[in-house]
Each structure stands twice: as structure tokens, then as C-alpha cells.
Simulated assay, not measured.
Amino acid sequence: MWPLSFISEEEFKQHVADTIEKYGEKLESYDIKKFNSNIIDPIKLIFDKMVYHSTWEEIVKNEIFRQRDKSNNNDIGYFHQKIFQYIAKCRVPANGKEGGWDVIFEDQDGIQLSMGDCVHRIYVEMKNKHNTMNAPAAGKTYIKMQNQLLQDDDCVCYLVEAIAKNSQDIKWETTVDKKKVSHKRIRRISLDKFYALVTGQEDAFYQMCMILPDVIESVVSDAYIKTPKDTVMQELEEIANKQGIPFFMAIYMLAFSGYNGFGC
């Protein structure tokens, strides 16, 4: 039996497949050219290896993972946002449309809020983590929400945080033009609370998380996604052997080949 009542198995699998597809070129294998495309910092790699007592293979794998992970964070943001297009009474506007909101939830029967108010619309700005917005970005987002409240007094605006400090639905207090501001209908809410609000199921987010690993495994298997075969270590070893230099020198040469004393 499919355990999620707020999204069908077919829709959820499709959403997972679309998210994996977003990984795109990150699934490609890394060679030394791709590895060093933004020029790595050999000094940092040297420190990491010595301080953490790691092997060169571990250091290289960790750096490749870091590079992939940096890009993948945006793709997980896609997962968190776009899933709501499959949830009843939610819509995910196209980029720049409907005020540029990430999600809009609308219920003609009314939405009962935690602080007691009842509205018919929720406008959402989504962030992956509670600390990803700097002060100017937070101020800009808050002003956007203020403007929405001025245009529509039958709504609430939420900053939905995928990774919040706590499970919460609280008034958002921030600083705009060096002044502390807050409004009861401009709120910060954790992702689990938002799932509960729009689905009517308190543990909806938990239930989604429990089924997610199996669905990802199924989708990856069905799509025959190949595990990347990175060749960076082999290429670095070849450079070291060919030039008769220690392996750490091959690491240095990625960035310092044109520096005094490093040229061949």
C-alpha cells in the first residue's frame, strides 16, 4: 500500500526522477580537467591530508564530492519547492510569475492559522536553511511580504525553511533599514509545519522522508543511472610517475605550474 495520502505514487516517483535529472552534468565522471576547472587550492588539500591523516585518494574523492555537492544544493531546492505542484490547493508559479512566489496555497474554505487568524491564501518564499539569507536579502524578502499584505488583507506570508533550527511556526522578526520589524502575518515556518498546514496531516513530512530512500533507489535502478567513474587519481599518479615527482608535487602543479620554482 502506498503510504502517502497527499501525493500519488506515480507523481512522487516522477518528481524524484525529475530531481535526479536535474543533477545533469554532476553525474558525469570527473577527469583532471573537470576536477581543476575552477583551479583547486593545493595548500588546503595538503593541510587537509596531513591534519586529518587521510590518504590522497580520500582527499581527492572528498574534493570531487564537495564540487558535486555545491551544485546539487540547488537541485534539492528544486525538490523541496516543486513537490507542492502535486499537492491539492497548492501551485508553483513559473519563474517571475504571480509575484515571483515559490509556492501559493489557496483554500476557498479558509485556512486556520496557528495564531488564530483565518485567511484564504498563503504566499511562500522557500529557503533551504535558516542561515542562507544575509541581511540585505532578508530585508528585501520582508519588504516583498509587506507589499503583498498591503495588496491582499486575506493572506499570510511565510518564509518556509527546509532546515530550520526547530519545528516552528513563528512571527518573523528581522531588520529593515536598521530597524527591527515584525508582523503577525509575516512568519517563519519549518518545512514539517508547512507540510502539515497544506496537507492536514501532522506527520506528512515525516512520512515523505520515510518513503524517500526506497523511491530514490527504485528510480535510480529503473533509469539505469551509472555510477560516475572518476579518473583524477589515476591521472595525477601518471603525471607524478611521468615527471618523476612526488605525488604532492602533482597536486601543487594543478595550480602552481606557472609559479617560480614549480615550472619544469
Rank of each mutant, 00 (worst) to 15 (best):
M1Y: 07
W2A: 12
P3S: 09
E10K: 15
E11Y: 10
K13G: 14
Q14T: 14
A17K: 15
G24V: 02
N38P: 02
I39E: 13
I40E: 09
I43Y: 12
K44M: 13
F47A: 11
Y52N: 14
I59E: 14
Q67A: 13
K70M: 12
K70V: 11
N72A: 15
Y86K: 08
I87M: 12
I87D: 10
A88V: 14
R91V: 10
N95I: 06
V103L: 09
D107R: 15
Q108P: 10
L113I: 03
L113D: 02
I122F: 00
T132I: 13
M133R: 10
A137T: 12
G139F: 07
Q148N: 12
Q151N: 14
C155W: 01
V160C: 01
E161H: 05
A164T: 04
K165G: 11
T175G: 12
K179D: 14
I186C: 00
I189Y: 00
S190G: 05
K193F: 00
F194T: 00
L197I: 01
T199M: 00
T199S: 01
G200W: 00
G200H: 02
F205M: 01
P213R: 02
E217C: 06
S218V: 00
V220G: 07
M233W: 04
L236P: 03
N241V: 11
I245F: 06
P246Q: 13
P246H: 11
A250P: 04
A250D: 05
Y252I: 02
L254C: 12
F256C: 11
